[in-house]
Amino acid sequence: MAQAQPASLYAPSAMVFTVAQGDDSAATVVRASTLSCAPSAQGTHPDPKAACTALKATGGSFDRLLAAPHPGRACPMHYDPVTVTADGVWQGSRVAWKHTFSNACAMSATLNGNVVFAF
């Protein structure tokens, strides 16, 4: 009798990342990118290898993608929300993560240097 064998030695990692204008389910997606990290980095992301490396560094806690806002950058205090999301499967586990920023400047200051949302 044949035994089931895994299709790959790697846990699946296939994600969709979005940047949307708004703070709820009716937010309008303005940019999106796909990323698959196993067995190789690929997708529509402009730098899939760097994005996969950054995701691996989170240890599966996507809140680690967020950094303290850059101290040398002042942002206006107006509310014009921008929401980023990460949906899919990361190293075999389902992920549905989102974070809303008060405006695009706050998003840029917090994600400064973050290659995952640089698309």
Rank of each mutant, 00 (worst) to 15 (best):
residue 1 M to P: 13
residue 3 Q to T: 11
residue 4 A to V: 12
residue 4 A to M: 05
residue 4 A to H: 12
residue 5 Q to C: 10
residue 6 P to M: 07
residue 8 S to C: 10
residue 11 A to K: 14
residue 12 P to K: 14
residue 12 P to F: 02
residue 13 S to H: 04
residue 14 A to I: 07
residue 16 V to I: 11
residue 17 F to H: 08
residue 18 T to P: 02
residue 18 T to H: 08
residue 19 V to H: 00
residue 20 A to P: 07
residue 20 A to M: 02
residue 20 A to I: 09
residue 20 A to L: 04
residue 23 D to I: 03
residue 23 D to Q: 13
residue 25 S to N: 15
residue 26 A to E: 10
residue 26 A to L: 14
residue 27 A to K: 04
residue 28 T to N: 05
residue 30 V to C: 00
residue 31 R to K: 15
residue 31 R to Q: 14
residue 33 S to P: 00
residue 35 L to G: 08
residue 36 S to I: 12
residue 37 C to R: 08
residue 37 C to Q: 05
residue 38 A to S: 11
residue 39 P to H: 06
residue 39 P to R: 07
residue 40 S to G: 12
residue 41 A to W: 02
residue 44 T to V: 03
residue 48 P to W: 08
residue 49 K to V: 14
residue 49 K to A: 15
residue 52 C to T: 08
residue 52 C to H: 09
residue 56 K to C: 02
residue 57 A to M: 05
residue 58 T to A: 01
residue 58 T to C: 04
residue 59 G to H: 09
residue 62 F to K: 01
residue 63 D to R: 01
residue 64 R to I: 01
residue 65 L to E: 08
residue 67 A to P: 02
residue 68 A to Y: 02
residue 69 P to V: 06
residue 71 P to G: 04
residue 71 P to K: 12
residue 72 G to S: 07
residue 73 R to E: 02
residue 76 P to Q: 04
residue 77 M to A: 13
residue 77 M to Q: 07
residue 78 H to W: 10
residue 78 H to S: 05
residue 81 P to M: 03
residue 82 V to M: 12
residue 82 V to P: 01
residue 82 V to L: 12
residue 83 T to F: 07
residue 83 T to V: 06
residue 84 V to D: 04
residue 90 W to H: 11
residue 91 Q to E: 15
residue 91 Q to P: 00
residue 94 R to T: 13
residue 95 V to G: 03
residue 96 A to D: 10
residue 97 W to D: 04
residue 100 T to P: 00
residue 100 T to K: 06
residue 102 S to M: 13
residue 104 A to N: 13
residue 104 A to Q: 14
residue 105 C to I: 10
residue 106 A to N: 13
residue 113 G to N: 01
residue 113 G to H: 04
residue 113 G to R: 08
residue 113 G to M: 06
residue 113 G to E: 00
residue 114 N to P: 01
